[in-house]
Amino acid sequence: MSRIVHVNGSFLPEESARLSIFDRGLLFADAVYEVTAVIDGGLVDFDAHQRRLRRSLGELGIAFDPDAWDLLGVHRELVQRNDLQEGLVYLQISRGAADRDFVQPTGAEPSVILFTQSLPLLDAPAAARGLRVITRPDLRWHRRDIKTTQLLYPSMMKSAAVEMGVDDVWMVENGDITEGSSSNAHIITVDGQLITRPLSHDILHGITRAAVLDYAAEAGIEVVERPFSVAEARSAREAFATSATAFVTPVVEIDGGPVGDGVPGPGTDRIRALYIERSRERLQF
Rank of each mutant, 00 (worst) to 15 (best):
I188S: 04
I188H: 01
I188E: 03
T189S: 09
T189N: 06
V190L: 10
V190A: 05
V190N: 07
V190M: 09
D191H: 07
D191M: 10
Q193M: 12
Q193S: 09
Q193G: 13
Q193I: 03
I195E: 03
I195V: 15
I195N: 09
I195F: 10
T196Y: 06
T196L: 06
R197N: 09
P198T: 00
L199G: 06
L199A: 12
L199R: 12
L199T: 05
S200C: 00
H201K: 14
D202Q: 11
D202A: 09
I203S: 06
I203A: 06
L204Q: 13
L204N: 10
H205D: 08
H205P: 05
G206W: 01
G206C: 07
G206N: 11
I207R: 00
T208C: 06
T208N: 05
T208D: 02
R209S: 01
R209F: 11
R209Y: 03
A210L: 07
A210Y: 02
A210Q: 08
A210T: 11
A211L: 15
A211M: 05
A211I: 11
V212H: 02
V212F: 10
D214R: 15
Y215N: 06
A216Q: 11
A216K: 03
A216L: 12
A217S: 15
A217L: 06
A217I: 11
A217G: 13
E218T: 15
E218N: 13
E218S: 14
A219D: 07
G220T: 09
G220N: 06
I221Y: 13
I221P: 15
E222Q: 15
E222L: 08
E222S: 10
V223Y: 12
V223A: 10
V223W: 03
E225A: 06
R226S: 12
R226D: 02
P227Q: 00
P227G: 01
P227L: 04
S229W: 04
S229L: 00
S229V: 00
A231F: 08
E232A: 02
E232I: 09
A233W: 15
A233D: 08
A233C: 11
A233I: 06
S235E: 10
S235M: 15
S235K: 08
R237I: 13
R237W: 15
R237H: 13
R237P: 14
E238W: 03
A239K: 08
A239P: 11
A239C: 09
A239T: 15
A239L: 08
A241Y: 03
A241S: 12
A241Q: 12
A241F: 00
